[in-house]
Amino acid sequence: MSSDLRIGSIVLNVSDVARAMAFWMPALDYEPRYEPEPDWAILQPRGEVGPNLSLNLGETRPAPAPHLHLDLYARDQAREVDRLVGLGARRVDDWPYPAEAHDFVVLEDPDGNRFCVIDASGA
């Protein structure tokens, strides 16, 4: 029996919805799905292919080693990391990278939500 479920939206708790929108919209080339509210916004990919990213005003801080995070695939990882840092992301230098791990860089958004930029140049 197949399921009718799909990932419709990934929700991030943020301390400032407008600031999070200012980062994530250009980072992913997303746009608001509806008129954003001060405590909630749904961003969708231009062309509507892929999951939404919802931004929820919250007071909790992200965990340093989150149970769930985004993996963003890039054909030119170094260029994308530099671009994201220019938008306000920060490198996570204290991440325990395994010696054999050369295909990902850990960053965090302005709210401290951690995500990886994966080298997908060989994919």
Rank of each mutant, 00 (worst) to 15 (best):
V92Q: 05
E48T: 09
A74L: 15
G47E: 02
G86M: 06
T60Y: 14
W40V: 00
V14Q: 04
L53V: 01
L70S: 11
I118K: 02
Y97C: 11
A20K: 07
M25Q: 13
A41P: 05
D93G: 08
L57W: 06
G88I: 01
V11P: 01
W95S: 13
G50N: 10
L84M: 10
L57Q: 07
V14W: 03
H102R: 11
V17L: 04
G8R: 14
G47K: 00
E37S: 09
A123I: 13
N52Y: 03
G47R: 00
I10H: 08
V49E: 12
P98N: 12
V49M: 15
S3Q: 13
L5E: 11
L57P: 02
D111R: 04
R90F: 00
P66C: 11
F104Y: 08
A99Y: 01
V17Q: 02
M21P: 14
D93K: 08
V11S: 10
D119C: 06
G47L: 00
Y30E: 03
F23M: 00
D4R: 13
E35Q: 14
V105M: 10
G86S: 10
E80M: 10
L87I: 05
P66A: 12
G122W: 09
I7W: 04
M21K: 04
D103H: 09
V17F: 01
V92S: 07
D119A: 03
D94R: 08
R83E: 05
Y73E: 09
P66Y: 13
L12F: 12
A123Q: 07
D76R: 12
L12R: 08
R114G: 01
V92W: 01
D16I: 03
A27K: 00
A18R: 09
V106F: 01
D109N: 02
P45E: 00
E80C: 05
W24C: 02
E31T: 13
L84H: 05
A74W: 03
I10P: 07
D109V: 00
D76E: 15
E31K: 12
L72V: 15
R90P: 10
G86K: 07
F23K: 00
Y30D: 09
G88N: 00
L68F: 14
S3L: 14
N56Y: 13
Q44A: 11
Q44R: 09
A27N: 02
A120E: 05
Y34E: 14
H69F: 11
R46M: 13
G8Y: 04
R90I: 01
E35T: 12
D39N: 09
A20C: 11
Y73K: 10
R91W: 06
P32A: 01
V81W: 02
F115D: 00
V117T: 06
L68A: 14
D94Y: 08
R83M: 05
A123S: 14
E31S: 07
L12D: 12
G112T: 05
A89Y: 02
N56H: 13
D82N: 08
A41N: 00
P36M: 01
I10E: 07
V117H: 01
P96Y: 04
V81C: 05
V117Y: 00
G122P: 04
